[in-house]
Design a binder for these strands. Structure first.
Lengths: 161, 161
DNA sequence: CAACAGTTTCAGTAACGACTGTAACTTATG
DNA sequence: CATAAGTTACAGTCGTTACTGAAACTGTTG
């Protein structure tokens, strides 16, 4: 007995939550977000563009765009079956680490802006105090995230490798 | 001799870079972003809404909205001078720590979504493997950011207090 | 090489969000 | 209580973006 499993309604609601999260967090449009959410729970894990379109209620044309976005972002991977022309898309093995890494890098990229600001105003001038505050935080943050991801990689290697 | 200082053109360009960053990163509209950038380098540090409007080339009405956004986000603080009715806005002492803290919290908030997904599919089911991958990363990340900010607070206290 | 399944491109549309200008409101001053 | 500086609320406009439907394209099968 494997239990009843989620209802289609529950699945839809969860997919919508995923889409909402990536819309807010990564600026992903609704349909790519829904396709991503769907690919996280669909059974089987591989789905054609047409199947995904039907599942989330969008046009096939929209799925093309959505899948391009997801492919470019490294979220999904294309796959083929012998004797079939259809491309079956599946969630990448672990898109999350890379995506999150990128987001944090983007966060600390403010360091370049503050650095240029300090150059402009003179790093030691009183007027640059406000910028320096920001510069210190983002510089420190930048020095923290490197080791942090090293710890993650070590942990992953320990579990998988 | 304190040097020539930046040209208005250079200031404008830098302000635009700040605005661009916060538009991409925090979803801030252009004008709030520009106002924020301006408040980072303006001299004197306190500015009225009218002054800011002139400096970044926006209407006063827009500045009202922009300043509300910045006040709500904790970026700026209002100030008054005796005998004057004008409100002078200045950059908060250190908005960056709090803002960045919020952003990282938002990042790890995906944990709630993956958690619900695991409940829905059954945490140990084969179908939940994809969700579990995400859940592990964000759970770990969540456990990392707490201590990380503690280190920052300690560092700050050591320097300031 | 013809037929066809599937994918992609593109033009058009609808909805959304930001910004402006004006008008109403608030509050300190004489 | 009248005045004036400044702030706020609002209606309208402009630009952008996501999405759809139809047509063009690609590549495999018989």
């Amino acid at each position: 007995m494997t239990g009843p499993g989620p209802t289609p309604e529950q699945e839809r609601a969860w997919v919508e939550r995923v889409a909402g999260f990536f819309a807010r967090q990564n600026g992903l449009p609704p349909i790519p977000g829904r396709a991503l959410g769907r690919l996280m729970i669909c059974d089987p894990p591989e789905q054609s563009a047409a199947e995904l379109a039907a599942a989330i209620g969008a046009s096939r044309a929209s799925l093309t765009t959505a899948l391009q976005v997801l492919l470019a972002g490294g979220f999904v991977e294309p796959g083929h079956r012998p004797g079939e022309r259809t491309t079956y898309y599946r969630l990448a093995d672990d898109p999350w680490t890379e995506v999150t890494r990128r987001r944090m890098a983007a966060l600390t990229s403010f360091l370049a802006v503050t650095g240029e600001g300090l150059d402009l105003l003179g790093a030691d001038s009183a007027r640059a105090t406000r910028i320096r505050r920001a510069h210190e935080l983002f510089g420190w943050l930048d020095s923290e995230v490197g080791p942090m991801w090293q710890r993650w990689d070590a942990r992953r290697e320990h579990r998988d490798g």
